[in-house]
Design a protein around this nucleic acid. Structure first.
Lengths: 178, 178
DNA sequence: TATTGTTATACTCTATAACTATA
DNA sequence: TATAGTTATAGAGTATAACAATA
């Protein structure tokens, strides 16, 4: 009976700007569940063609912005730390779907480009993506899907280029040493 | 220029019930990004107290339904395969936050209950959860949060007890052998 | 010195398969 | 035979830290 979600009405000690703290926590839980279903569906669709979700996102990014793309830009687009992008590109390179090259202008940079074989996958990826999304959002009407997209865009920024996003590699180590 | 999101208007071959296939795929991408941010925020909040997201969800489930709870019910609530629930409970048990016991009525079953130490964590978990949700949905107004919750509930079912959810351990292996 | 990417390592979450104990 | 949970194994995804090459 510690926090037995009382009336959730008189709990506003003027310290937090949340008008209904319990609701926003429930929202987080719902999002976790929805995203888990989406991931499962995505694996079921992409797995048989030998791709993972992150790999498919890299391929789509390369198409969207036009390859070659720098490794750092891929990491930013995926909102991950550079090391993670390296891993994903490693796997794609092993599958001969992308190729690495050194940028002649800045030889520290790595340019990643799609191979012909990688380009051939585009249609199948797009189809898998549609099926995944359909499976996850089938209970929503088109209008509701539009509304959901709008709301997520508000809290996450437009499709590419995410505002406060980024992997935010914690400033030092946030509070481990208490 | 293969699928350069043309007018997205004449692509309705009457085979798919999606009136706007590209939009629903974009919706999936947005959800992936939002959930990644939520997970990062969750790790940042829970990590310092030695908990992971899945562990915190188990603790919250035990409180919500009243412990002890059977392992199979925990797995169903988390929408994971039984093996995953075992892993998470293993870690919680190692941290002395939960305890296992054999159900005397069906000695195959395992009953999981919170320890006193586990109960003491509840407030801190709730606070971390609020901060996580706030960080992720800060750009949304209370009204928008309510709308988002409603939409996700439609496509994911109410909070506990998820309709078509479940880990759906693929029927044999779905289409590996083509 | 600062930046780009990497090697090295570790951990969370999740899955399939085979097995044990019980029903 | 069917069910509940486990051991064993694997792999996706991601992170920090130390380092190399380059700027």
């Amino acid at each position: 009976m510690l926090t037995n979600r009382s009336s959730s009405r008189m709990t506003r000690p003027a310290e937090d700007s949340a008008p209904n703290a319990e609701d926003v926590a429930q929202l987080a839980e719902l999002l976790v569940r929805t995203s888990r279903r989406l991931r499962r569906s995505s694996m079921a669709e992409l797995g048989p063609m030998g791709l993972t979700g992150a790999q498919a996102r890299v391929v789509r990014y390369l198409v969207a912005v036009g390859h070659p793309a720098r490794m750092a830009d891929i990491a930013a687009a995926l909102e991950v730390v550079p090391r993670t992008a390296t891993s994903v590109v490693d796997d794609l390179e092993a599958a001969k779907l992308v190729a690495r090259a050194t940028d002649p202008r800045d030889r520290r940079s790595v340019l990643v480009s799609l191979t012909d074989e990688g380009v051939l996958l585009l249609d199948r990826i797009a189809q898998a993506r549609r099926r995944t999304a359909e499976a996850t959002f089938s209970a929503l009407s088109p209008k509701q899907r539009g509304e959901l997209t709008r709301l997520l865009t508000v809290c996450c920024g437009p499709n590419e280029r995410c505002g406060s996003g980024g992997p935010q590699p914690r400033p030092a180590h946030s509070r481990r040493g208490h």
